[in-house]
Write a protein that binds this DNA or RNA. Structure first.
Length: 726
DNA sequence: GACCTGCTGCGGCATG
């Protein structure tokens, strides 16, 4: 412990004295020993608020303090802008006594700050993968100067990248950076929620030595959980006025309950979907007013302008009570002021997400964490639709809380082909280099190890397809350059993100930019946005802008996104909750009644194992097998022309029962995954299954092979069908 | 009935 402190640079030590640190946390001691000792790539894995960022940067700053210039010396890559801004503040403070400059670069960072970095590269740079991508495309010639002496790369919130498009992009970028700037920095990953830390060791540097795993499982602060249930009431009309909207009385009741429990505190309220976030914010603003509460209500999500987000963040940091209704833009790492309580309205998709959200509260010493859950459910009776009577979203939330208490975390989906991101990185590398031979391109992109499934043959096949589609073309000397359509892709500002997002229009009130919307109501209609009510005055498609003015009416906006993946373990726990008789102590009386109602519904349909239950309109499949298995079965039935819906834990197929059962049996007896893939390729809307950004540019045969391998789960489906149809 | 994350350059204008 003492020797770890002694190993730090004198001015880092002085700063710690200034900040009145009395001791180093265990993860910090271990990280200092490792990074200032034998060194090498490492993963720092410890609970939220255990000081991981400092664990990485105390030794990094100590190592570069006497030699901070000549190029950027350390890069920090974060998944969220708000997180980068927060870490920027903390690092600036840490660097106060050092000669180490701290820079940040993301979409909301102004020209001035960018020019300062370009003029005198040095110290630490905080950046998103998307902004780094933009550097490769637009400023490739400056990159050697910027990163020549780069010694460290810190990947924060590593779990947010593992097994995702952005993760493959990031791993490829690190390799490309090495090729471009001749640097080979030590790679350091940070996370509090790695579902499988040992398997993450090989991710930071594929094909290279595995990272050293530095773990500190110090027990978390005490956590108080309270889950409150509310029964939904019938909506009533809002009155005669033209701009009045239907008033959802349960939303009003929900808002009132949240305000009463949280008043006088600083709270984060997670409501999952942007549409729901806006609806709840609107209700909270109105109720706070009618209750004459001084508490501020602010909104924070990714479709709001930087000004709106900055306002919310400032208000949270300021003294005085404040509640922020937010999406996962405030989920990770952020340490904004003193958050007293975390409120979760409806269920998130994963345990990891819940753990991160809970980790936003109680970050000061001796403060406890508080999680309040709220669920509005329809009262069910014997006539109710079974799916409603199971109260699936509520059940999922309780399952996630139970799994969190058992310390379960979803393992990442590693080893994926990431074919969409492969194309992204091919196009980006051609923009970066201005042109390259296939061999060079292979070395730069596939050589990163981010695309484990790519072979020289499949890579060549992808290149040929890109050529056929005018995305790339071959010059006389054999080298490859961007084609017309490839240049169009790369020139558009939406290119830099590896993930798909719908095109959006800017929402303007006078000169103020409120944010962006993909689904805009026609002029004359009303919309709730940024926590306020607006009338749509005009839409200018050419300028891609919507003009709004304040109004009294409004309804929440729609956003387009495919549903998330639920891990089979979460479904297993939901089923266990239905079968078991215990009542978690954190449920209030209504929540207990909701759980009881779920169990009564399950008993009424005789559900005790995965099963197929006939009903008047067809067959209901209660599966609890995880989203991948359900999607596979959805395809089996939809391909046979059967009308089918997915309901979290199962499916509802409509039509003649015999036909449905025969279709399932026929598939189990002779599965043809390729047929399912072909059907998905031809018929499936992007909305339902969420195809990745550049998948439309893949050779169809390759797309289908990847789809079969990664999106379908044939063995599980065969076993399940045999079980439910025997 | 179903999540979210992120994003450049430039022209036009006002200001010192």
């Amino acid at each position: 412990m003492r020797e770890a402190f002694d190993a730090l640079h004198t001015n880092v030590q002085r700063k710690l004295w200034d900040m009145r640190w009395t001791e180093l946390r265990p993860i910090q001691v271990q990280a200092i020993r490792h990074l200032l000792g034998k060194g090498g790539d490492c993963i720092l894995s410890s609970p939220t608020a255990s000081g991981k960022t400092e664990a990485a940067f105390l030794p990094i700053l100590s190592a570069i303090a006497d030699d901070p210039a000549g190029s950027v010396r350390a890069v920090y890559i974060g998944p969220l802008k708000a997180l980068i801004d927060d870490q920027f503040r903390r690092l600036e403070e840490l660097c106060e006594r050092l000669e180490v400059p701290v820079h940040r670069w993301h979409g909301d960072v102004g020209d001035g700050a960018r020019r300062r970095l370009l003029a005198a590269p040095g110290g630490v740079l905080l950046i998103t993968p998307e902004s780094l991508e933009a550097m490769f495309v637009r400023r490739a010639t400056a990159m050697p100067r910027l990163f020549r002496r780069l010694a460290y790369v810190v990947v924060d919130e590593m779990h947010a990248f593992l097994g995702t498009e952005r993760g493959a992009q990031l791993v490829c970028q690190l390799h490309r950076l090495r090729m471009r700037a001749g640097c080979d920095p030590v790679r350091i990953g940070l996370s509090a929620t790695l579902g499988d830390a040992p398997s993450a060791r090989g991710w930071l540097r594929p094909g290279g030595p595995a990272a050293t795993l530095i773990e500190d499982s110090a027990s978390e602060t005490t956590l108080a959980i309270r889950v409150r249930g509310l029964w939904r009431r019938a909506p009533r009309a809002g009155g005669e006025r033209e701009d009045a909207i239907e008033v959802d009385t349960s939303l009003v009741e929900l808002a009132r309950a949240i305000l009463l429990a949280g008043k006088g505190n600083t709270n984060l309220i997670f409501a999952n979907a942007k549409s729901r976030i806006e609806a709840l914010a609107d209700a909270l603003v109105r109720e706070a007013e009618s209750m004459q509460l001084a508490d501020a209500i602010v909104v924070h999500h990714g479709s709001l302008s930087k000004e709106m987000r900055a306002h919310a963040e400032e208000r949270l940091r300021a003294a005085g009570p404040c509640s922020a209704v937010c999406s996962n833009t405030l989920e990770l790492g952020i340490d904004i002021g003193q958050i007293d309580e975390v409120v979760q309205v409806s269920a998130p998709w994963s345990v990891a997400s819940l753990v991160q959200r809970v980790g936003r509260s109680g970050r000061r010493a001796h403060a406890r964490r508080v999680l309040r859950g709220y669920f509005v459910e329809d009262a069910a009776d014997a006539q109710s639709v079974v799916w409603d009577g199971l109260h699936l979203e509520f059940l999922r939330a309780v399952a996630l809380i139970e799994l969190m208490l058992e310390r379960f975390l979803e393992p990442p989906h590693l080893g994926r082909a990431h074919a969409s991101t492969l194309i992204h990185q091919i196009l980006s590398t051609l923009a970066e280099t201005g042109g390259a031979t296939a061999a060079v391109l292979y070395a730069r992109v596939v050589g990163s190890g981010a695309f484990a499934a790519a072979t020289p043959e499949s890579f060549a096949e992808v290149l040929r397809e890109l050529g056929r589609r005018d995305l790339i073309e071959q010059m006389g000397d054999g080298s490859l350059v961007l084609g017309d359509r490839g240049q169009d892709q790369v020139d558009h500002y939406t290119f830099y993100a590896a993930f798909h997002a719908p095109e959006e229009l800017r929402v303007l009130h006078g000169d103020d930019v409120l944010g962006t919307l993909a689904e805009v109501p026609p002029p004359g209609e009303h919309v709730i946005f940024a926590g306020r009510r607006w009338r749509v005055d005009a839409i200018d498609m050419e300028r891609r802008a919507v003009f709004v003015s304040p109004s009294k009416g409004g309804k929440p906006p729609a956003f387009i996104s495919p549903p998330g993946l639920v891990h089979p373990e979460v479904h297993r726990k939901m089923r266990e909750l239905l079968l078991g008789g215990n009542e978690p102590a954190y449920l209030d009386d209504v929540a207990k009644a909701i759980l009881k109602s779920s169990r009564a519904t399950a008993a009424r349909v005789g559900y005790f194992a995965p099963s197929a239950q006939p009903f008047a309109g067809g067959l209901r499949l209660f599966l609890f097998g995880g989203t991948r298995v359900h999607k596979t079965l959805y395809l089996v039935l939809a391909r046979a022309g059967i009308d089918v819906d997915v309901y979290d834990i199962g499916l509802e197929a409509r039509g003649a029962t015999e036909n449905i059962v025969d279709t399932l049996r026929a598939f189990a007896n002779a599965p043809d995954p390729e047929g399912l893939a072909a059907f998905a390729d031809e018929k499936l809307e992007q909305r339902r299954f969420g195809r990745e950004k550049f998948e439309p540019f893949l050779p169809p045969s390759l797309w289908r092979a990847v789809f079969v391998r990664e999106e379908l789960d044939i063995p599980s489906v065969v076993v399940m069908v045999q079980g439910i149809t025997s």
